[in-house]
Design a protein around this nucleic acid. Sequence first.
DNA 1: AATTACCCTATCTATTTAATAGAGTAAACA
DNA 2: TGTTTACTCTATTAAATAGATAGGGTAATT
Lengths: 137, 137
Amino acid sequence: MLSKKTKYGLKALTYLAAQKDKQPVQIAEISKKENISQKFLESILLSLRKTGILGSKKGKGGGYYLIKEPKEILMTDVMRILEGPIALVPCVSLNFYEKCEDCPDEKTCSVNKLMLKVRDANLAVYRNNTLADLVST
Amino acid sequence: MLSKKTKYGLKALTYLAAQKDKQPVQIAEISKKENISQKFLESILLSLRKTGILGSKKGKGGGYYLIKEPKEILMTDVMRILEGPIALVPCVSLNFYEKCEDCPDEKTCSVNKLMLKVRDANLAVYRNNTLADLVST
DNA sequence: AATTACCCTATCTATTTAATAGAGTAAACA
DNA sequence: TGTTTACTCTATTAAATAGATAGGGTAATT
């Protein structure tokens, strides 16, 4: 199941991408328009800023804005920041690889075998989609 | 993240599929060989039996066995039983559809848009893989 | 009839998710 | 320069879920 964090994050990013100008948008505005708890949204936008997806401006007229063009923002990056590893088990993860402690041999492990295919399929989707693809035209 | 329930279930099914004869295999044997808590495994195998994947035999010489040939057992069915809906959000689920309460319009929802593609990609994998594909040769 | 192994219910703990509160800090503008 | 505005951080809490465990009950073989 997709976490609300990811859901909210995607909606917020899409909202920012749909802006005509590149003026900062206040958290309160996004939270209101997209039905998201403001405080929760704060932490989500913060993590997107710290990982280089968003920029922020303080003071009057401040808010959050996209650093790059929507079509330059890959879903692989967004999903890894918001949802964590794309792989469903650590032993098939590209960026967060870990050996399973209970599994004697990855080569013959059926879970590993299936999840490798699942990872590749998901990766293909996330690599072929950018934030621009999520904005309704 | 894949639940341990699914992980254990897949390993148990693979273990059964790898049997030469079709004699029932005891829970204790699978639990020992695959490093799975026996009680937890009991409940997993039970749900697989109730959904028509496994058969069971009681008494001496009893245990669990596959009802169909491994290549007839689709991963779509197995995953739905063990892990639940394949879709990451209910609004794109084929078998468990539900409207999102916080989303005004699915047609313009960016989350819906992305998750639809993710669902299709995952579905393709699960439809093209059977239990036979998980057994190491 | 006794054994074996499935079957069911209930409980418990740890972890994670989601939401909330409150205080602090930095930048913009008058 | 000071006030406003809005971002930033820490901590707390409630709810849900996962995972594991215990113990007893029941049905089918031999």
